[in-house]
Design a protein around this nucleic acid. Structure first.
Length: 426
RNA sequence: GGAGAGGUGGCAGAGCGGUUGAAUGCGUCGGUUUCGAAAACCGAUAUAGGUGAAAGCCUAUCGGGGGUUCGAAUCCCCCCCUCUCCGCCA
């Protein structure tokens, strides 16, 4: 959520920022509503102050055994009714204002390039080169089933389309990636590992911005009013909701492996072959809670952690700086990491690293007490490091051999009992 | 799932329906004292919002939401959470 007080004082800056995003926000409507709410609030509180004073007087008079108590009560009752009428009106308008604010996107940082959509994202960096093959490289949807490490048909049989299953060395390879990612983050990058619930409340989903705007992308357990997380960002960022963290403890950095559940409504048929886009996938996420002063630099550090993993896996990738028009709802700046999948002949997004500035903190009530003992909103950052199925795709397509076997990247071998090659018989 | 107990400020823990934002203790901060520290003593110590140039004033908040009342931390109803015991279960 944006800072309403800031909108009040600098509406033009917000207008410009939203226009750069291509977001239609009725600034005048918001400001008018805000004005009404505050006017009603002032009125209601003024009447309430009178009611309180009258009640206090009645209390004293009753104690002293005054005679005019009944008359005073009647007067106070009338005032109370008046207050209730005004306050009810205020409440309705305030709800309306809140609802409107909840679907307003975060303005991008000033140095985010302006653009209308994904076609105007900028390639900020490229690492490595596309692997060259002496044969025609195969896509994972051919390689995987041939090796017996992926099974799409049986997954569809038990769960419908958009689900995949791994088997044998494929399942093990996936687990090896998770372990290696987590170990790297905890031992080398200073993250604390978390294990969290995969079902969360609507309030939690609202804290990070999935609700109310993106309800159609979430799986919901209607009988219990719980939702399946679409990313570990949701439970991890909300973990400290409503709390006050001491500045000395910042930045708080967490890494967490969870499955992610996404309905992918409206994405049917778009890049859905094989493991590329599925309703359930595993991901290792990193989340930072940090100060406004540090957050921009911290975003680069976080992104570096994700990039490093791809480098050690020997995977060719590029960094995209998203333009204003392609930046997600709550994000103020996002870098996507796209890995090259030589078989599918495509760049696949395996990480999205973002700073949400204080947008999520305002929703989730995440604050810190500064060295000066003042309370301030935290800045939240997160990024995938990394998303499993697409890493797996790039990995096997990149490391495939002419005979259809897969060479295991050296960093993963300790996690596979020394296995250096996945073959159809493995 | 059944039975019971409980949810009050950073923490612990009081609180008759009436000038209670809330005793007391601890903690924290400032001061006195000290060569310095400890101890002791003195003082301060919530958050959010409205209004105002500011000082300030006002409103709200005792798990959440309703209700009774002129007035609710205190009474009533619903919900949530925690703990204990029983049952069930990976």
């Amino acid at each position: 959520m944006i800072d309403l007080a800031a909108l009040r004082t600098q509406p033009d800056a917000f207008r410009a920022a939203w226009s750069a995003r291509g977001a239609a926000v009725d600034v005048d409507g918001l400001l008018a509503l805000d004005q009404q709410v505050r006017a009603l609030k002032t009125r209601a509180e003024g009447i309430k102050a009178e009611v309180n004073a009258a009640s206090k007087a009645i209390g004293m008079a009753a104690k002293a055994g005054g005679a005019a108590v009944e008359e005073a009560k009647a007067k106070a009752r009338a005032l109370g009714d008046q207050h209730k009428a005004v306050d009810t009106e205020r409440e309705a308008l305030e709800k309306e204002l809140q609802a409107a604010l909840m679907v307003v996107p975060n303005p991008c940082l000033p140095d985010v390039p302006v653009g209308k959509d994904a076609s105007e994202n900028r390639v900020a960096a490229t690492w490595g080169t596309a692997p060259a093959f002496a044969f025609a490289p195969k896509a994972h949807w051919d390689l995987g089933p041939a090796l017996g490490i992926m099974d799409f048909e049986r997954a569809a049989k038990i769960s419908g389309s958009g689900f995949a299953s791994l088997r044998g060395a494929g399942a093990r390879l996936s687990r090896a990636l998770v372990s290696w990612f987590l170990d790297t983050h905890t031992t080398r990058n200073g993250y604390t590992e978390l294990a969290v619930p995969y079902l969360v409340t609507p309030k939690t989903m609202t804290g990070t911005g999935q609700l109310p705007k993106f309800a159609d992308q979430l799986y919901r357990c209607a009988d219990d009013d719980l939702l399946l997380i679409p990313t570990a960002e949701v439970p991890v960022t909300n973990l400290h909701a409503g709390e006050i963290i001491d500045e000395a403890a910042l930045p708080v950095r967490y890494t967490c492996h969870t499955p992610c559940f996404r309905r992918e409504a409206g994405a049917a048929g778009v890049g859905t072959r094989g493991l590329t886009r599925v309703h359930q996938f595993d991901k290792v996420e990193v989340v930072w809670l940090t100060t406004p002063e540090r957050s921009r630099a911290d975003l680069d550090t976080l992104r570096g952690h994700a990039e490093h993993l791809l480098q050690e896996l020997g995977l060719h990738y590029r960094v995209l700086q998203l333009c204003t028009g392609d930046t997600g709802f709550g994000s103020a700046m996002t870098f996507d990491l796209e890995v090259w999948a030589p078989g599918a002949n495509a760049w696949l997004e395996v990480s999205s690293c973002s700073t949400f500035t204080d947008f999520q903190s305002r929703r989730a009530d995440l604050r810190y007490r500064g060295a000066d003992s003042k309370l301030r909103l935290l800045h939240t950052l997160n990024g995938s490091a990394l998303a499993l199925p697409r890493c797996l795709i790039a990995l096997i397509e990149t490391w495939q051999q002419a005979d259809g076997s897969i060479t295991v990247p050296p960093v993963l071998r300790p996690y596979l009992g020394g296995l250096d090659r996945i073959t159809a018989t493995a």
